[in-house]
């Protein structure tokens, strides 16, 4: 070790970031906390860090910060390409379908005006989601044409051009839970169920966390999915239908893991695994 310090990109230091920073402190690894709100780079950028861990909550700031850091030769975890792929639901779906990985039936319509007919062709119930965003924000289940019309009218009033793109997905009839799998490099660290009677089973929405046993099928699918996205530190979200078939829903590039800790306690050391992975990428 070091020449250069590591850096952790984060504008909000939440539970997860505090645990990671505490692990770096514990190991005596030199690092800087980079708040993206103060990030300035003059081109051409020069390498100042041995490696950078992205824990930024704003996808836009994280993506561009990583582009700049990578241009300077700095290893980033995750890479900008992984962030771009995971951060856009359509790009994720295209990659999953290209590789033949199981995922709910998906369609895209490039304007709200054409969406009603497309939704009726697609069939009800259908889930409509924004291309970018997390925690189930602005996602809606549509069960009939009247609701479709109402949701599309609301979307048409939103200012972002991305909200005029309609991403549709089949609603899988699942038990009241989904599965978050944490992948670190080529290893599945563990998995947990996110249980909620709400169809959106996000921990940020109050879902309950329970340990999920690792089956060969779950491990294989999660690793194949993580590889498809470009690898790194990833939270793979899976759902199971009533017959137990697994589907990939999405992949998170800056995964929250407080739900994992609630399910597994300190039996699995997530911050330790993250720091191990980061150190393995570092170019001192």
């Amino acid at each position: 070790m070091p020449g250069r310090p590591l850096a952790v990109l984060a504008s909000r230091v939440r539970v997860e970031e505090k645990l990671i920073l505490a692990e770096l402190d514990r190991r005596g690894v030199p690092y800087e906390h980079l708040d993206t709100r103060q990030f300035v780079a003059t081109l051409p950028p020069v390498q100042s860090y041995a490696a950078v861990l992205g824990r930024e909550i704003s996808q836009t700031r994280q993506l561009y910060a990583c582009r700049v850091l990578e241009a300077a030769g700095t290893p980033t975890v995750n890479t900008a390409d992984v962030i771009a792929l995971c951060g856009d639901k359509l790009l994720t779906s295209l990659e999953l379908s290209r590789r033949g990985l199981p995922t709910p039936r998906t369609a895209v319509v490039l304007s709200n005006e054409s969406a009603l007919a497309a939704i009726e062709d697609f069939g009800f119930p259908v889930v409509i989601k924004p291309l970018v965003g997390s925690w189930g924000r602005l996602a809606a289940v549509i069960r009939d044409p009247e609701t479709a019309r109402t949701v599309l009218e609301h979307r048409a009033a939103l200012s972002s051009p991305q909200h005029q793109v309609v991403y549709l997905q089949e609603l899988i009839d699942k038990p009241d839970r989904d599965i978050r799998v944490i992948v670190v490099g080529d290893e599945v660290l563990g998995a947990y169920y996110r249980c909620s009677p709400d169809w959106r089973t996000n921990v940020a929405r109050g879902a309950r966390s329970e340990p999920c046993p690792l089956t060969d099928e779950l491990v294989k699918l999660s690793l194949e999915t993580a590889r498809a996205m470009g690898g790194g530190l990833l939270g793979v979200d899976l759902i199971e239908d009533r017959d137990g078939r697994l589907y990939v829903l999405e992949v998170n590039h800056t995964m929250e893991f407080r739900g994992f800790l609630a399910a597994h306690g300190d039996r699995i050391d997530v911050p330790g695994a993250i720091v191990d992975y980061l150190l393995a990428q570092a170019v001192w």
């Binding site: 909000r12 230091v13 909550i57 704003s58 996808q59 836009t60 951060g87 970018v132 965003g133 997390s134 925690w135 924000r137 972002s160 939270g235 998170n252 590039h253 800056t254 995964m255 929250e256």
Partner: peptide, 21 residues
């Protein structure tokens, strides 16, 4: 927490459209 010496708190920024995991 917007400063450490002394420790100072301000209202955190509102959630933005592209925030997430």
């Amino acid at each position: 927490v917007v400063s450490l010496d002394p420790v100072k708190l301000e209202t955190a920024p509102e959630i933005e459209e592209d925030w997430g995991e």
